[in-house]
Design a protein around this nucleic acid. Structure first.
Lengths: 237, 237
DNA sequence: GTAATATAGTGCCCAAACGACACTATGTGA
DNA sequence: TCACATAGTGTCGTTTGGGCACTATATTAC
């Protein structure tokens, strides 16, 4: 079938286009654990199962795919996440029993404290430890999506400071290192970690300190946004 | 609008879902130039303009999004490319005058000789120098997509040997280096280049040689496929 | 006060990786 | 057989990163 014939069918509604959705893997860090936001499905199909937050494009209000994701995340958490990035688009004939479907997936990060109060007010949304979520029999192919997002985040934790968005605006380097370690799954060398961060020059010393029982640690915040928050190494020139 | 209400509308055909397409940025290397495959549009909208090859999902024959891309590329080149990878999904209200649309884009590579004979038989398909293509006023947002693909390919050329797929099965290291240089846009250090490739251990010495006026160069081929063809550096452990 | 303890942050060595570039190797053709 | 052209290597100095012991600065115990 050529494009013209297809479009005629499409316009007449005689043709059923693939179901298009948007999903988000929203990570946070809380109590020494990497967690992901899950939503209990209230509709068929897969009713009752837990799923990644997501939904359909609202053609009247959304201008971009990111608008759609952010809108959906706001519905669940009350706020827009400070970091969001397209992950991958999964599509095919088999991933939804209703037929051909496509989902454009995003990875997002947010500080736990930024949305905990909102999440506590609803019962069908929860932060779940990532390792546990991966064994939970999620709806559709969401387990696969979650694993993919986790692996990508792991790569980012190795050479970027994107994981800092899972923390509050101000944070200490030991804190950030613990987040990276939780994502990567093994301890990091303190010196190497700090050297990387210093070279990237993406953090600003706030001048404040925070004590956790020993010598107080310097509080940092992210430098003003400018493109991707990765180290210079593999990007740009 | 919640999901259930949306689906009812959707099933009734009362709702117009975003137009979903798939596009490919197919690169090759020929006569010292990096080229991209373009197709002259024969249908509205944007009729007459050159565009990236692509089209709609055929729900009856395609099982995955990759099937769709490969099918479309076969229509234009006669063969399936040896390398294909999802690039990014562009979507929004403004990119197609018909309204909300989404396109899942792929980057692909192929040897020029593998499809030249087929392409010569049709008039609406052509290999175009990448730099020239980027100034050509392509259809829709295809210029943006092309630039994005080129930048991503550039990154890959810095730490992987994916560009080898723009060459025939057997190739020499000086040849491969020229491809990388064309992609990156500046000369590479011969020794560093060869060191990287040796360490990656992804090429096999065929035992054959090829002369180009001086000392004959060793012919290599890619090692059997296994995942992504990137160097170990940023991937795995 | 002062010592013990806990956490933050630095100095420094060594090994691996990389850029730069001169050198050797091996073919073609005058 | 000698110039030339292209392929491929040796090697040096710099950079990057892991490892680990050291110093720094707070709290807590006595």
């Amino acid at each position: 079938m050529n494009e013209e014939a297809y479009l005629q069918d499409y316009d007449k509604g005689a043709f059923e286009a693939p179901l298009l959705t948007v999903d988000a893997v929203l990570f946070t860090y809380h109590l020494d654990e990497l967690k992901v936001l899950l939503v209990e499905r209230s509709n068929h199909p897969e009713k009752g199962k837990w799923a990644l937050p997501g939904g359909f494009v609202a053609e009247d209000t959304d201008k971009t795919l990111e608008d759609t994701v952010v809108r959906k995340l706001k519905e669940k958490t009350g706020v827009a996440p400070p970091y969001i990035e397209q992950l991958y688009t999964f599509g095919g004939a088999g991933r939804d029993k209703r037929g051909w479907s496509v989902t454009v997936c995003y990875t997002a990060l947010i500080a736990h404290q930024a949305c905990q109060s909102h999440i506590d007010t609803v019962s069908d949304v929860a932060w779940v430890n990532v390792a546990r979520a991966e064994k939970m029999d999620l709806a559709f192919d969401h387990e696969k999506i979650l694993r993919y997002a986790r692996e990508r985040l792991r790569q980012k934790a190795l050479y970027s400071i994107v994981p800092a968005y899972a923390l509050p605006k101000k944070f200490t380097l030991p804190e950030l290192q613990r987040v990276h370690e939780a994502i990567i799954g093994k301890p990091l060398q303190k010196k190497s970690f700090r050297r990387r961060i210093e070279q990237a020059d993406l953090l600003i010393d706030t001048g404040e300190k925070r004590s956790e029982g020993g010598r107080p640690a310097t509080l940092y915040r992210m430098r003003a946004k400018s493109g991707d928050y990765t180290f210079v190494r593999n990007l740009e020139q």
